[in-house]
Design a protein around this nucleic acid. Structure first.
Lengths: 224, 224
DNA sequence: ACCTGAACACCGTTCAAGT
DNA sequence: ACCTGAACACCGTTCAAGT
């Protein structure tokens, strides 16, 4: 009985890397980048920090793994677009939504260049660019332009969300404050920024985002 | 005499925001994002942490201010390009070099959306895009595409430098390791990434970067 | 007005000791 | 093989007390 109990409880209780990553995602979603703590994680998993270190190398490893989990899920759903352009658009939108739902993923992606999560995205975009018939010469810059645009916009959106949260504001009133600050800039030095300040709060993020993707696609096919 | 001495030493010794920012830049350049510490800063300035808090709100304020100092310097040099395209290219290259020299600026920019350093870049790019004759409808996505591409590439470069430093590797051998890892990926799932893995270590960063800028510019003028 | 420096709460990580 | 939990070194920030 002792043994049977031992085995059962071992199986039920024993920590897995997956459990740790899932719990980490929950904490990151709730509290942002600062929400993931070995203390909070230990409490959530009813264990000690040492136990976690048996399964992960360090915090950076943990965040990258959590990020990869989100990206892998997002990239699994393979939208079968009518054209490569359509597929890239769908892909970009999926990523936008994923990072919108998990803002910490933006920063995590940025700090893990060449690692698995980035490679997943790189691969999907690369395949579509290739089937677009882009020449080998322009392939790299086409993929790089799309990748960086997607990450950049998503990252900015995430940072906006975080800043708004820190200041305890709604997204709308946060953009309103930024817009007001832009309108107050020196007209001599900042004519362009002032002239678009009023548009800022009314912007449709998703539409602007897709406009940028389309602009990139035009530039890519123009380079044949 | 007492008074005169007092005044003199006050003037010489008294902490200014500029001194704090300059010292912060030095620490960030030397030790990356983790190199800036109120402890290290206090020691460098021969004072206590409380004195620093009299001049800056918190660490985030300090990093943003340090970032703005770098960006302001970079944006001051106004390259008078022959065409808007040339000016944008020169601008992009200046930013690339600045972030290459101060890798922490990449992350700092990303986490300060709508703040002064970003606005400086936004304005310069916006003015050039406007003089390119882009329609009001496409203006925002054109500027946003350029801005995000520039920040994305620069940020990735910075992250590469940081990762290489952490692993104690030269840049070249770090890219070699990434290339090797990419070559070892599953051929079924990662055909694209595998096919470009060999090119990775030989890439000319600056050339690829400018290729991307040109691609964007083509897409922008194509949208007239 | 500006600085001092001890103190606080909290963090990632380690490690001897257990099972 | 896997977990416990105390301990370590360090961090950003505060604040009563000084000048």
């Amino acid at each position: 009985m002792k043994q049977r109990n031992d085995t059962r409880s071992r199986r039920q209780r024993s920590l897995t890397r997956e459990q740790i990553i899932d719990a980490s995602i929950r904490l990151l979603d709730e509290g942002g980048e600062g929400g993931l703590t070995f203390q909070a994680l230990s409490k959530l998993l009813a264990t000690g920090p040492g136990a976690i270190y048996w399964h992960v190398a360090d915090k950076s490893d943990l965040v990258t793994a959590a990020c990869d989990e989100i990206i892998a899920r997002t990239m699994e759903a393979k939208p079968a677009g009518a054209s490569p352009q359509e597929t890239i658009r769908a892909l970009a939108l999926d990523l936008f939504d994923a990072i919108d739902a998990h803002p910490w993923v933006g920063a995590a992606l940025m700090s893990a260049p060449g690692q698995l999560p980035m490679v997943r995205i790189f691969e999907r975009i690369g395949q579509q660019v290739r089937s677009l018939g882009v020449s080998a010469e322009h392939e790299w810059s086409a993929v790089s332009a799309l990748l960086n645009y997607i990450l950049g916009v998503a990252g900015q959106n995430a940072a906006n969300a975080k800043l708004a949260a820190v200041q305890g504001l709604e997204r709308a009133s946060f953009l309103g404050e930024v817009s007001a600050a832009w309108s107050a800039l020196d007209p001599e030095s900042y004519p362009f920024t002032r002239s678009v300040a009023a548009q800022l709060p009314a912007h449709d993020d998703r539409k602007d985002y897709l406009d940028g993707i389309d602009l990139l696609l035009r530039g890519i096919v123009a380079s044949s």
